[in-house]
Structures are given as C-alpha cells and as structure tokens.
C-alpha cells in the first residue's frame, strides 16, 4: 500500500506482495480442504462423542470462512474501506446469521408431527 497516495488520496492501492501472498494463502487453503475431505479428523479422545461428519463440516467451513475473510479483507479492500460500507456488510452478515439461525432452530419443531404422519402412512400401507 506504500506505493501510492501520491496525488489522489482516495485510491487505496494494494501492493503486489499483499495480493500475491493472499493468493498463495487461498491456494494452500483450497488444497488443504480438498486434502482433508474424507480424512478421519476425529481426535482420539473425542471418538464416539462427535461424528466424523460433524468434525468434517466444522473443519471445511472454518477453512472456507478463513478464505472468505481473506478475499473480503484484501481483494475487496475491506481493510481500507469506509466505516459506513463495513457497517453495511457486517449488517448483512448479521441478518444472514439471524435468518439461518431462526430457520434452523425452527426445523426440529415439527419432527413429532412428521413422525406420527409417517407412522400413519406405514400403518395404512400395512393394512390393505
């Protein structure tokens, strides 16, 4: 970022070093996430407490979040962004979290009804 701010103060130029190192990090993380997919990631002491799938999704989404943050911070110049724009973006993430959170807490609510409905179906098909 040092090689600018000459005449037009409003351009925040990213230096090639930053761009290339962010790119390198993204590539390494992508290879890592492909490599980790399908590996047994559950630590021995947690064996039986958490399932492979749970660990897998946490690990892959953590890597994706790190990659996403790198893209937003450096490629999208978020580190030099105006506070108003940062606030807007953070708000959008907040509302996404609310949306997903409420939807997910609600999904389990009807399980009992679904199960009783499915039991009915089975009973019906069992008695022709």
């Amino acid at each position: 970022m040092s090689d600018n701010h000459d005449e037009h103060g409003f351009a925040h130029v990213m230096s090639p070093q930053i761009l290339l190192s962010v790119f390198g990090a993204l590539i390494v993380l992508t290879i890592l996430t492909v490599f980790l997919a399908g590996k047994d990631l559950v630590p021995r002491e947690l064996d039986g407490h958490v399932s492979q799938k749970q660990v897998e999704i946490v690990v892959s989404l953590t890597i994706a979040t790190i990659k996403g943050s790198l893209v937003v911070l450096f490629f999208m110049h978020m580190i030099n962004e105006k506070p108003l724009n940062i606030l807007l973006f953070v708000f959008s993430l907040f509302f996404v979290a609310l949306f997903l959170g409420f939807a997910l807490t609600d999904t389990g609510q009807y399980d009992s009804r679904i199960q009783s409905y499915e039991l009915d179906i089975i009973e019906q098909s069992a008695t022709p």
């Binding site: 996430t33 492909v34 997919a37 399908g38 492979q52 799938k53 897998e56 999704i57 892959s60 989404l61 890597i63 994706a64 990659k67 996403g68 893209v71 937003v72 490629f75 999208m76």
Partner: peptide
Amino acid sequence: GLYWHIVDLIWIFLFPLLYLIGS
C-alpha cells in the same frame, strides 16, 4: 471487481458444502 470477488466468495462456500461431503 467487488462484484467479482463476491461471486468468488460464494463459490468458496459452495465448494465445500456441495463437493466435500463425506467423500
């Protein structure tokens, strides 16, 4: 550029969610 990075960002999340499940 910002738009393009958002498209990239969405793919960064789509990829593990769709392709890297229990392989």
